[in-house]
Structure formats: C-alpha cells, structure tokens
C-alpha cells in the first residue's frame, strides 16, 4: 500500500496549524518564513533522493540558481514577485536539463562525487563572478512590487510568511501528485531496482531525468523565495553547507514520504535557531550526532518512528479489543 496514504488525517491539521502560526507567533514570522523555505527545499530533495533514489550531495546548485535568477530578475526591473519565482524555478529546471543527462549517467558513489564537485564548482564560480553575484558581499538591492499588486511586504514578515506558505502548499501538493501517480510508482521501482525496471520496459533514464527536473524546479522556487523574502543573496546559497543542511533535514524527518521533509525542516531549523548563539563548531556536534542517530534508528527518520509508534499502539488496541469479546 502507498505509505503516503497512511497520513492524510494529519495533513489538514498541519496546514491549519501552519496558518495559525501567523496569529500565535506574530513576532517570529521571519523564522517561520525561513523554515517554510527550507521545508520546500527539503521536499524538492525528497523527490530526487527519497523517491527516485538520486543520491545527490549538490542540490544547493538549484537552490542557488533559483536565488540568483530571482535576484537578477529583480535587479533587471522585473519587480512582480510571483512570476519572478516561477521564472527562477524554470531557470533552475533548465540548468538541471543541461546538467542532468550527464549527472544521471552515474550512480551510487560516482554520482555522489560528481554532484559534490559540481556543487563546489558552482560555488567557486559564484565567488569569482563577483560582477554578477557581488562576491562575498552578496546581492542586496532586491526591490519587489507588492504581492499580486495588493499585499505590501512588511517588516513583521507576515506577508512573506503567507506568501512562502502558499508556494509550499502548492509545491507539496504537486510533489504528492507526482509521487501518487504511476510515474511516481515507476520512480520508486527504479530507486529499488533499476535493472529490473529496465527489463520491465520502463524508460529508466528519461524517468530519472523528469524526476530530477521536477526536483530542480522546486529547489529553484525555494531558492527564489529565499532571495525574495530576505531581499539578499549571498554565495552561501550555493555552498556545500546548504546541500548538507537540507540533506540532514530530510533524513532527520525521513526520506521518501514527503512528510518527513516538512517535519525534518521544522525540527532542524528550530534546533538551529535555539543554538544560534553557539559557536558554529559546537553546532557541528549536533549535526554529527543527528546523522549518526538517524542511521542508527534506521529507515524513516522521525516520521518512521512516529509511524512505528502509531502502528504498535494500533496493534495493542486491536489485541485488547480482541481480548474482550
């Protein structure tokens, strides 16, 4: 049975709670905005890594491409934000369309290395091309028109948060659609056994490429949202740390279920926020421990744990019910 279908009852309350954040935590909305951006980025990585099994360590490439594309559009005078995000997402997908066919020729370890080095290459490129990226200073002159011409950007990040949340909702539903479709089923088949899927006649390479493109599109959208809501793009959007951060979020929440991406991003970003005062080296203890912990608890991350707990309690309830006729 499709694992996703086990969680629909919690999804509606989740989105209601996400909306309620505006009322309950009105002073923490910039943090909430950052969380929502990373959640969308983690969802995009789940499409590539969790669903299609494309083991990439360089997904910041598309996040960064989206961020720079959005910033470039804004500086060129394209101030309308929504179309800016869409165009930036398309730009990231185009980049994936160029790089994807080469990247996806390898699998496993070579794939990890190629994506890692390609990510580093892009990061170095952004550092060198300071005329375009602002180098270490980044780009900060991003001027945007109000959302839909009506909602003005605010200091309290309320419009920013709802704006990102809307994209997260649409992006998540789109990802869910992909996963639930027969195409999504084929992708999971390829993830588990590419050779058998090829024998069954599935066009493995073109399926993988389509999954990679959709993932890059969402990652680019997330990057564009980050650029627009913070009005800043630094070269760190392309850094290997960004790739590792989103990977840790995803595996912490649990890969392959899409819900894990949301849960992981929220937990990771909240912990990171609480530890913001820390020495960054001490923060590495947390990341390292989280990674070891995630591998030790086995498949599914936090969502996996929650699922196992609910299944166990359901079994005990079932047993009790049988005990009393």
């Amino acid at each position: 049975m499709n694992r996703l279908l086990q969680w629909p009852s919690l999804e509606a309350p989740f989105w209601v709670a996400a909306l309620a954040v505006v009322v309950i935590f009105p002073s923490d909305l910039s943090l909430a905005t950052a969380i929502a951006v990373m959640a969308l980025f983690a969802v995009s990585l789940d499409l590539a890594l969790g669903i299609a099994g494309i083991l990439t360590l360089g997904h910041a490439l598309y996040f960064g491409a989206g961020a720079y594309a959005a910033a470039a559009l804004a500086t060129l005078g394209w101030a309308e934000p929504v179309s800016g995000v869409v165009l930036a997402g398309i730009a990231a997908a185009l980049l994936a369309g160029v790089a994807g066919p080469f990247i996806l020729r390898s699998r496993g370890l070579p794939l990890i290395m190629v994506t890692l080095v390609l990510g580093l290459f892009a990061f170095e490129l952004a550092n060198k091309a300071s005329d375009f990226t602002g180098g270490d200073n980044g780009l900060s002159d991003i001027v945007l028109a109000p959302v839909l011409g009506v909602f003005h950007w605010s200091v309290y990040a309320r419009v920013e948060y709802l704006y990102v949340l809307a994209f997260l909702f649409v992006g998540f539903q789109g990802a869910k659609r992909i996963v639930g479709s027969s195409f999504g089923l084929a992708l999971r088949g390829i993830r588990d056994n590419p050779v058998r899927m090829a024998y069954l006649g599935a066009p493995v390479q073109s399926h993988l490429l389509r999954a990679y493109l959709s993932s890059a599109l969402l990652a680019g959208v997330a990057g564009a949202l980050s650029a627009q809501t913070t009005r800043f793009v630094g070269t760190d959007v392309l850094s290997i740390n960004t790739s590792i951060d989103v990977l840790v979020m995803l595996v912490l929440g649990g890969t392959g279920s899409l819900y894990g991406a949301l849960v992981g991003a929220i937990v990771y970003m909240l912990v990171h926020h609480l530890a913001a005062e820390w020495n960054p080296y001490h923060w590495m203890f947390i990341i390292g421990a989280l990674l070891v912990f995630v591998v030790r608890i086995g498949e599914g991350g936090l969502v996996g744990i929650a699922r196992r707990i609910t299944e166990r309690s359901r079994q005990t309830i079932g047993r009790r019910a049988k005990g009393r006729p």
């Binding site: 496993g108 595996v251 203890f285 990674l291 591998v295």
Partner: peptide, 17 residues
C-alpha cells in the same frame, strides 16, 4: 549508500567539532 554517506559525514562533523 545513503546510510554510509550520512554516517561518515556525521563522523566527519564529530571529528571537526
């Protein structure tokens, strides 16, 4: 391979820290 990558990146973070 994913678990190997995660675990060994984790060890790398722990060493650096």
């Amino acid at each position: 391979e994913l678990d190997q990558v995660l675990m060994t990146i984790g060890l790398m973070f722990l060493t650096t820290a």
